[in-house]
Design a protein around this nucleic acid. Structure first.
Lengths: 703, 703
DNA sequence: TTGTAGGCTACGCGCCGACAA
DNA sequence: TTGTCGGCGCGTAGCCTACAA
């Protein structure tokens, strides 16, 4: 039996071993490719062994979603890079995946070549179902084909200068050539290659009372060269060709110290990120270095996993579980509860699903909140039933029945089969509109999510349905138009709605939320609009036109509306504001405001992050309460005359502006590429005609 | 006496010591600044000691010339970065200079913050003389104020594990606290700080037979930690505060091995360069890491030195000398002869002075050529006279007379005084036009440069005077217009010239050179022109319009001329060719051509680098001979109608197109900034009017 | 079965003066 | 004046078994 032997795992998980060995049948020729790249390409098997059991490496040729926001989190203290035209989710084809190891630390990483795929985004927009996503978009060949390997965490004795390495008996028998046990102290020389291709020689001896396997001569040299300390782990792996290979998994600490020495300069990092983002803007190939063992590296998600994670709705109070790798390299599960759903940075990354879930863990200290992305977790409870059924089905298959893809249909549940074929977008996502952005607000009139187990039961004729969507930019759009706005056709008169809204704002216990905005990244002197939404379900969504007068930055914005006269100004502190983030601008301005005693007015915060504010001199004080708000910005704009036309035409506040939407990812100001929203609008349309087409369509829907 | 003691220098150079000590008087307070920057700022004195005697660090606030081409040479195997809008010489103000040392290797480097200065470039264009360059633009405070220091190259004994470090007697007495020599074996503990601020402790003992100074305990730890090998050098330095400091200068080898480990990924380097170039395009501050000890680091040149290097003309056969640091850290001089003058990469860096001189060294193997930049060398022969006179004048000053700037005027020579004040551009640079691009061609009708010692003697009424200029882009322009084109007013008839030229091409011994071209970086579907020149002085320069049909790349170009019908096509191998260099495109295309048996036709090479080629099907076979050619490209364009107009108007070949020139550095396609060539053309002109103004002016000159 | 400790040996680091370049 | 070598002592790396968890 040649499965994986991980000595750090309690040997209780028989199912696990089964899976790995069964998949191994499909591809059991170990492929070691020592060539091609500049930093030597490494043995695939060994790379996967070092990377650990939980990593998911995208497959060459597969579709993935790249989340720039998650990537940027690896460079925390960074000045703002220009993020115009960068959508929060970049749909990409994986051109190539190269496995590497850092020469200094042996740390594994992968260089992933991605190219943005327009097609996929368009298909989404057109709700086409044949996206052609295979089931197995994760590279699992290397991991599954590991015939004989073991991994041992080093003890104090193993790493001391006093002696050698104590080899676990089963490991030695499985991986090393067998010794002549008739001799009194049988020994041999082992030669093992590490990730970088270096050879290491060890004396392997079987001695002591009681007898044991030891590595002596050569071991301390290895320990010293690799700077291993107790707590780190070593892996031995015998390939099908009989060659011994040797890898390491560091505990944690050395990563920081060594990495800080090797860390490239700020300038260099900045430049490399800029290169990535400019490539995305231009739809060119770009390369991402992807460390599967670092925390929060899930910023390249297989497309089908990304999709799958939105099959089930997320709601506050929902239980979930997540797999992760414990300190001893074993696989563990933790469970928790969703405590909130909101964008982590609604200004820079509107609609991003990156860590959009606020969660609490069940076992860790109760007050500690953290953020996760939907694809990192699995729901527990009802959703878990189908999973467990499926798992048992697989087991049965393995024992008796021929292997075939299961096609269960569980009444009342979204089954696995829904994933393939039609994908059931409409069905699956309908129930969610009310759930987002209503979190952590325990108003009595909201639906009680803990009780509503059935996802078919969604609120009827609720006028607050202009809500955000779990899929953000490209995904959310299509659904909204057809279903979400339907409930609004018999809306009350607009003046009434305005009064309602105003009354609502005066009511301290209710919050007003700026839900969506329309703005122009990269263009100055255009008009933009926020869509404001009260949490009172009776109130109408409100559209506020705002002038954006400077490129890619809200240096000056004015709200124009009968009862909302306000100025929002941002200093032109740096001529080239590109190299600063929104947050810097906002926060420095905030300090100026506070120094003038204006701190309580017009500040729009999103979970503590100020995202916009208004001077209080002219503002209706209650317009922007101190409660949570959210703000989504899309990339489109109107001319002056269009806005004033809309204002005059209606003569009143709400809705004075049609809600225009566009693709931030496609819109390129300095380009003559035209903008396409739907297939119907045609590919030969100019920008101007498309703008009108979109507006008309939206007017049809909204008014 | 507290001068520098370099034990590797033979103590013959008294003048040298005088200079360093005399400058030292101005600034003798050692300044050690341990703070401010991310990677700890280092002791200035020690930094300069480690950097060596020859480095020239630009002074904060001074003017420099940054040569991107030289910078890029540090990243040899690099795909082409978009270099549109990057001139070969970027005139910059030094905002800041931070001294650093690499934590891994103790290697010194400087982070120089530069900001492009439009003013200077404009003043050049307007030939204004008050550029306000000070004399002392090189940071010399740190180097001169070193009171007590020594530098010793490590011997095998010094670095072996067998013993300690043998301290030279004079060094020990000068730098270390004195011992109690009455004792039989006097010893003490020394504490020295290195560049990174780390303290090192050594036992200093005076013992042996005969007596000597040794460092024993602590020494091997230092050797091991710093990975020093024999051949490396250590420096000890006692500051005015009595503190001992300790630096290292590696021989060479370890730089490569360690650096390759620490070397950032290709992607990161690429990004950082891109950041620099985009900052230059936008005239923003950018940072350059500048290793003064690496070879070819002279890509940041003090402005006055850059200027000064063009005081004397360069001609083939001219002798020169160059100072450099020998392996033992001593300063040496080598002499050589200029064997050629031409751009190293006329396609990417037209007019660049970076390594534009081909030279042969006098002593090294005769056949070995190498390239230098004008500011790296000093002329010998007649030019040397003025220098030696000046040096003796300084000496006399130092002995008897008060120190004042010498203001000699040497008849028949360009004196030092010409540097200040009017700068004498016109005078100095006139004689050079014929010398460039005529190099290494030993035709009988060219002027014999070895004989022409007087720089006033330049060829009269020579029609090949449309030549390149020593100052390239911004500098060369002004001079050309006024003087160079003057000799062409009474030119022979154009058809005659064409026939002449054609006959010339058929003559195998004579070469044809494409001298200058006009093209549009970053714009497609425009027309461009090459100026072709025969080496026959009687032949007219020829203008060939060429269509450039794709942005920033010669994907398709057609030569239109009566007897030159040719197609030049480049495959559209990558949709986005931005990420590949010109050379890649050319060379891959070349392979295709060769595979079709077209290898002998239409290939334009510049000293072995293919820069363009034509298919042979339609080309006049002799048009593009296999001899050296050069091609210069400037950033400008004409519309279709303008080109056809010119063609129809003239009906003949040469010159069918006015030679348009523009500023590559200013021209920005996606920008509404207007193009300015001279003050006279006004700053309010639109692009179109300026184009006409330039064309009209050039028509006046040429026709 | 395997982690840790004590005993023991030998290698080699590092201090010394001798000697010679 | 200083580079290299042989002599030599001692610290410790590293191999071994014993013992215990």
């Amino acid at each position: 039996m040649g499965g994986l032997i991980d000595l750090n795992t309690v040997n209780e998980d028989e199912g696990h071993e089964d899976v790995s060995s069964s998949v191994g049948e499909a591809n059991n020729a170990p492929q070691c490719s020592p060539s091609s790249s500049s930093s030597a390409a490494v043995c695939m098997e060994l790379w996967h062994a070092c990377a650990g059991p939980l990593i998911s490496l995208p497959k060459k040729g597969s579709l993935v979603v790249y989340l720039p926001q998650g990537h940027l989190e690896h460079f925390p203290d960074f000045p703002g890079i220009s993020l115009d035209n960068i959508p929060p989710h970049v749909f990409c084809r994986v051109l190539d995946v190269k496995l590497h190891a850092e020469a200094a630390t042996d740390e594994v990483y992968a260089q992933v070549s991605l190219v943005p795929e327009n097609e996929i985004e368009e298909k989404f927009r057109e709700r086409e179902s044949d996206i052609g996503l295979g089931e197995e978009d994760i590279e699992d060949a290397g991991r599954s084909a590991t015939p004989h390997m073991f991994c041992k965490t080093l003890t104090a004795s193993d790493t001391s200068t006093h002696g050698g390495f104590s080899v676990p008996r089963r490991a030695a028998e499985d991986c090393f050539p067998s010794l002549d046990y008739k001799q009194p102290r049988p020994s041999q020389e082992l030669i093992a290659k590490d990730l970088l291709g270096l050879e290491w020689r060890f004396r392997h001896i079987y001695r002591g009372q009681p007898r044991r396997h030891l590595l002596t001569t050569g071991w301390s040299a290895f320990i010293n060269k690799k700077r291993l300390v107790s707590g780190d782990a070593v892996l031995f792996l015998r390939g099908a060709d009989g060659e011994l290979r040797l890898g390491i998994r560091r505990a944690s600490q050395l990563k920081q110290t060594t990495a800080s020495l090797v860390l490239p300069s700020e300038q260099i990092v900045h430049g490399s990120l800029e290169a990535v983002f400019s490539a995305i803007s231009a739809r060119c190939v770009f390369n991402i270095c992807y460390n599967p063992r670092s925390s929060s590296s899930e910023f390249i998600v297989p497309f089908h996993r990304f999709l799958k994670s939105f099959e089930h709705s997320f709601f506050v109070g929902m239980g979930f579980r997540m797999r992760f790798e414990a300190e001893d390299a074993a696989e563990r599960c933790c469970t928790g509860v969703i405590t909130g759903i909101c964008d982590i940075d609604p200004l820079r990354w509107p609609g991003s699903k990156w860590r959009c879930l606020l969660v609490k863990w069940d076992d860790i200290e109760a007050n500690h909140q953290c953020r996760l992305s939907p694809w990192e977790i699995e729901p527990t409870g009802s959703a878990q039933v189908s999973i467990s059924i499926m798992a048992s089905g697989l087991k049965r298959n393995r024992i008796g029945l021929p292997l075939a893809k299961p096609d269960f249909h569980i009444p009342g549940e979204v089954g696995v089969s829904d994933l393939r074929g039609s994908l059931g977008f409409q069905k699956v996502l309908q129930g969610q509109e009310i759930l987002c952005f209503n979190t952590a607000y325990d108003g009595s009139d909201g639906p009680n999510h803990r009780k509503s187990k059935s996802r078919r039961r969604y609120p009827e004729s609720n006028s607050t349905s202009v809500a955000s969507f779990p899929m953000g930019e490209p995904l959310g759009k299509a659904f909204r138009f057809h279903k979400v706005f339907q409930g609004q056709e018999n809306c009350p008169s607009q003046s009434h709605a305005a009064a309602d809204l105003h009354g609502q704002w005066r009511n301290e216990s209710k919050g007003v939320e700026i839900l969506e905005g329309i703005s122009v990244p990269g263009c100055g002197n255009r008009w933009s609009a926020f869509i404001m939404k009260s949490s009172n379900p009776q109130a109408q969504p409100t559209f506020l036109p705002v002038q954006i007068s400077s490129p890619s930055m809200f240096r000056q914005a004015s709200i124009l509306a009968p009862n909302i006269q306000s100025q929002c100004r941002f200093n032109d502190q740096k001529k080239e504001a590109n190299d600063r983030g929104y947050k810097d601008i906002f926060e420095s301005q905030l300090r100026i405001m506070e120094s003038r005693g204006l701190n309580h007015s017009g500040l729009v915060k999103d979970y503590g992050n100020p995202i916009a504010y208004w001077s209080s001199t002219q503002i209706v004080p209650d317009l922007l309460p101190r409660s949570k708000t959210s703000c989504r910005l899309f990339g489109f704009s109107l001319t002056d005359s269009e806005v004033h036309g809309a204002l005059n035409e209606k003569g009143s506040l709400s809705p004075i502006l049609p809600p225009l939407l566009s693709e931030t990812s496609i819109w390129q100001p300095h380009d003559n590429r035209s903008l396409t929203l739907t297939k119907a609008s045609g590919s030969n349309c100019t920008k101007a005609t498309q703008l009108c087409a979109i507006r008309d369509r939206l007017l049809d829907i909204v008014l």
